[in-house]
Simulated assay, not measured.
Amino acid sequence: MRKRSAVALTIVVSIGALAMFFPFLWTIITSISSGAGLSASPQLIPDDPSLSAYAELFDNTPFLQVIANSLGLAIATTVAQLATSALAAYAFSRLPFRGSNLVFAIYLATMMIPIQVLIVPLFIEIKMLGLLNTYVGVLLPGLASAFGVFLLRQAMNAVPRELDEAAKIDGAGHFRIFGTIVMPLVGPAVATLTVFAFMSSWNSFLWPLIVLRTPELQTLPIALAGLQGQYTTQWDVLMAGSVISVIPMVLIYIFAQRYVIQGVANTGIK
């Protein structure tokens, strides 16, 4: 009975994995099918695979500059969120103060506010600060993350406080405890936040579209949207851009997969 259940579960999981992977596989196949368009759907195994779509993409568009723009913004956003989230999480976890639970609850409640509601006030604020069409204007709203604070706080709560007490006996202060004891022990949660923060910035479309006006400053999602107008029926070029946009996320997830799963699991352990 158990063997049958295991086999059935394996079949179901395999079908689900195939269903999720197939669109990405079809995107890759389309990108290497030269001249693929609405009238010529690509085959599962292309007769004459070619990288001409990638060559055309980089030759006729500033795609390399666009990738550099998105990569720089994603790295800056990730570093900023790691720093602010780690410090705030340590304060909520190790420096309790009157009303800290209420402040934390209110801070988490901001996660329920859709970004569309904040677009207009954020735009007015950025405009008054003179930061339109600048990367600083794109970065400011994403310097802190309520999700990141929650994730790291839950991980820090699982770290035994006896380690803090032993360090204090040896004369360590909060900054030393934070840097040498707590942070090394919440590595999986940090890796999880790194992946989520990088992915959020890398895929961000609406806010960069509103703030950035110069084509040279545009990010990858905006450039991909522009390709739909420039290469309307050249699906191989469109899919080549899509494949390039996915590659960094696949690589970073493969590298941090074990830590991501462990970090998400640890947030539910009290």
Rank of each mutant, 00 (worst) to 15 (best):
V186A: 06
G142A: 13
N157R: 12
E162F: 07
W207F: 06
G137L: 07
R213G: 12
T214I: 08
G173N: 13
R176T: 14
I115C: 07
Y135S: 08
V250H: 06
P184K: 08
N157H: 11
L140Q: 01
A223Q: 05
N203A: 00
L251W: 11
T180E: 14
T180G: 13
T219S: 03
L151K: 04
A225I: 01
T232F: 13
K168N: 06
I119V: 13
L163P: 08
M199Y: 12
L224K: 04
L131I: 05
M249A: 04
G241K: 08
Y231C: 11
K168S: 08
T134Q: 02
V182E: 01
V120N: 13
I177T: 08
L140K: 05
L163C: 01
N203F: 02
V190N: 02
F178I: 06
V136N: 10
A167W: 00
E125M: 10
L143V: 15
D236M: 05
F205T: 06
W207I: 04
L118D: 02
A144M: 09
R153T: 08
I119D: 05
V243R: 00
T219R: 07
Q154R: 05
I124F: 15
T180Y: 15
A172Q: 12
V195D: 02
N133K: 11
A166H: 14
W235N: 03
A144S: 15
T233Y: 10
R161K: 13
L238Y: 03
L140W: 03
R176D: 10
I181V: 07
L212N: 01
V182P: 02
L152E: 05
P215A: 03
A155D: 10
L212T: 03
G171P: 10
M156R: 04
P121K: 06
I126S: 08
P188L: 04
E165A: 15
W207Y: 08
L212K: 01
L212V: 02
L132H: 04
P208G: 09
P221N: 02
G148C: 04
V237D: 01
L206S: 06
L118F: 05
P248V: 01
R153G: 03
T214N: 15
V237F: 06
G229Y: 03
V120L: 14
F198A: 03
V120R: 11
Q116V: 05
T219N: 01
P114V: 11
